[in-house]
Design a protein around this nucleic acid. Structure first.
Lengths: 206, 206
DNA sequence: CCATATCCGTACGGTACCGTATGGATTCAT
DNA sequence: ATGAATCCATACGGTACCGTACGGATATGG
């Protein structure tokens, strides 16, 4: 009724994006061919032209997510001049991003389904990549590798837990001015605690 | 074939426990009457005698979990003499507990399904309870309420993220001796950082 | 020991989904 | 414009699950 000219032909990418939206709303089980088809104003006939089966759609959605939603942050952060600023920018991007609904829900849904054979490799890959990136930033600051890895792991872990809380029980998190105070607290305690090198050349601490 | 006398009559509690195991294995969607009945060596006829429908089973499973798997830790921790020791014991209990498979998986599964109307109240309740308990420990240490809450939130967040990693991507976590080193690192940085009061009477810091 | 309450198995209809088959519509190349 | 390639809708069979109906088994008290 509303849009008749809108019903153009669909591409495999359209299906993958719709599948991602489905994941964000109902997790992996929500990737069901017929409901997604209905929402796209199409039928299974279209789907099975572009994909062999449901698993292929899940794989395509995961690939799309890994391609688009994980590199953008890094690029934005790399614009900063030095490692310390990058860390702060990363922290800022990532905490405000945790409150953005769809991306957040996809993260949580995929984490929860990490044991699924299709999901496991993707989650493992991007998790390691993220932690390694943060660890590299700490090393750039002059932190020795072992400690840098631990520091990165802790920072990532904190973000992960924060994301979970934002999604599952936002009511336990502080709101308003107290929220900013809390994030400042976390920044000081976890991300750039005292005792961290300042990034300027000099003898690294033991 | 194996056990014929074993097939005694089932109670509602038996069903609830079986549902919990199902959650630990496949999340909330795995709570399906017919498969669970099969595993119990029974049929739906039994189930619908004890429960009105599937939702009632989910509710019973959640109640069971909340009743049994959340208070035990606190009791164990309360055996310690002072707040500082309680915090350390809590941290220890909770990090080794994060590696225990079934409980961990239930936590993760429920977190992921926190938007589900049946799950939301339970998760919200126990999350707030846990954070409040940790905050109380910090206050017992002499930390002023606002800071205590932040500190507790951070500690809980860290545990949550750690649990997620243990479940989803254990390969990014350190193993062996390095694991102990990492946990010691987290204990120092997050749980009982420098600058925290020692719990002995005296003027609390601003 | 039997009458009644309790518990459970079987059989059924209904829904939601997967995947296949097939013919028709649409677009494209020439 | 017309044949071919591409894309899609309809119709179908199959599976897994929910919930109901109902009769039969099993316990339990008098």
């Amino acid at each position: 009724m509303a849009n008749e000219k809108t019903r153009r032909r669909l591409s495999a990418d359209d299906w993958a994006r719709a599948a991602l939206t489905a994941i964000s709303e109902g997790g992996l089980p929500a990737v069901a061919v017929e409901p997604i088809a209905a929402r796209l104003g199409a039928t299974k006939g279209s789907f099975y032209w572009h994909f062999a089966n449901r698993d292929a759609l899940v794989a395509a959605a995961l690939e799309l997510w890994e391609r688009e939603h994980t590199e953008a942050v890094v690029e934005h952060v790399e614009a900063e001049p030095d490692a310390r600023a990058k860390l702060r920018r990363l922290f800022s991007d990532v905490t405000t991003g945790a409150a953005r609904a769809p991306e957040n829900r996809i993260e949580v849904a995929l984490l929860a389904t990490a044991s699924h054979p299709l999901v496991a490799p993707t989650v493992s890959r991007i998790t390691e990549r993220r932690i390694a990136y943060v660890a590299a930033l700490y090393e750039e600051l002059g932190v020795p590798p072992g400690r840098a890895r631990r520091q990165a792991l802790l920072a990532f872990t904190t973000w992960l837990g924060y994301t979970q809380l934002v999604h599952a029980t936002p009511e336990v998190l502080p709101g308003g001015a107290e929220a900013a105070a809390y994030l400042g607290f976390v920044l000081d305690e976890v991300v750039t605690p005292e005792g961290l090198p300042d990034g300027r050349p000099g003898p690294p601490p033991v």
